Simulated scan of single mutants.
Amino acid sequence: MIASVRGTVQAVRLDGAVVEVGGVGLLVHATPATLATLRVGATAFLATSLLVREDALTLFGFADPDEREVFETVQTVSGVGPRLALAMLAVHSPDALRRAVQDEDLAALKRVPGIGHKGAQRIVLELAGRLGAPSTSASDGGARPDASDTTGARPREQVTEALVGLGWTAKAAQDAVTGVADAVEASGEILEVASLLRATLRALGGGRG
């Protein structure tokens, strides 16, 4: 298993980053929050989880080992695969997921695209006592820096595509992006993909709290 990677960031995309390790560029899939901390040309360290299938090897990266552990643990729930697990961490922080399971907060879990009422009930039942208790000082801290190469001429379209990739319907993603982007432009701020993506995730119901 590849437990972590350290190397130079070659590219940052909406669904992952390419990190050069020993002359080899590794594509690492990650959440928007993690990708927003990466900068092209800088050295990055990511805790990783390797998914091995007959036709592909897929590497997922995380800001820290705790996030990786939650990613792997939630996949033990029936019906939860890596794509849905990553979407859960795109919407909620690890401690937010712990609180949702501990408090049996089905509404919080249902904010994740692809999780319905029965799915949320199953997650609470199967993960009870397995994620550990949330930190009493749980906080996402200050705003995370934007990835420098995720700005572009089509931020609305790019963010919509990223949200669809995480599981939202095209209409839900487009409506949310339009509302947030219009507000950003009306305020006179520069429309950047990374910050627009984070703001739209919050608007869709849950942020990462």
Rank of each mutant, 00 (worst) to 15 (best):
L57W: 04
D103W: 09
L166R: 05
D64I: 09
T160S: 13
S137A: 15
A181V: 03
A56E: 13
V18W: 10
G119N: 10
A3E: 12
T43S: 11
G209L: 15
A153T: 05
D95Q: 00
E189D: 15
V9I: 08
A47F: 05
V124N: 08
A44C: 04
A107W: 04
S78T: 15
P65L: 11
T31P: 09
E126S: 08
A203M: 02
I115E: 13
V91P: 06
A3R: 07
Q75T: 01
S148G: 14
A128M: 10
P155Y: 09
D105Y: 11
L14M: 12
L197D: 03
G206N: 03
A172D: 15
K110R: 15
A108Q: 11
A194D: 14
D64A: 13
S137C: 00
G205Q: 10
L163D: 04
A138G: 13
G81K: 06
G81M: 05
L35W: 02
V70T: 15
H92D: 10
R13Y: 11
G81Q: 07
P134Y: 08
S4A: 14
G16D: 05
T58W: 01
L51C: 01
T178Y: 02
G188W: 06
V177Y: 10
T150G: 09
D95A: 07
A30K: 01
Q75L: 09
G209R: 15
A162R: 09
Q158A: 15
E185Q: 08
Q121M: 13
R130E: 07
E72T: 09
G152V: 06
T178F: 01
V77D: 02
F71S: 11
P155L: 09
D64E: 13
E69C: 06
L201R: 12
A44Y: 09
P134F: 10
V19M: 03
A11P: 00
T8Y: 01
D15N: 13
V159P: 03
I123T: 06
R53N: 03
D182Y: 02
E104R: 15
S139F: 02
G61H: 02
D175F: 06
I123W: 01
M88N: 01
A170K: 14
L197S: 13
I123H: 06
L59F: 07
R53G: 06
L196Q: 01
S137L: 14
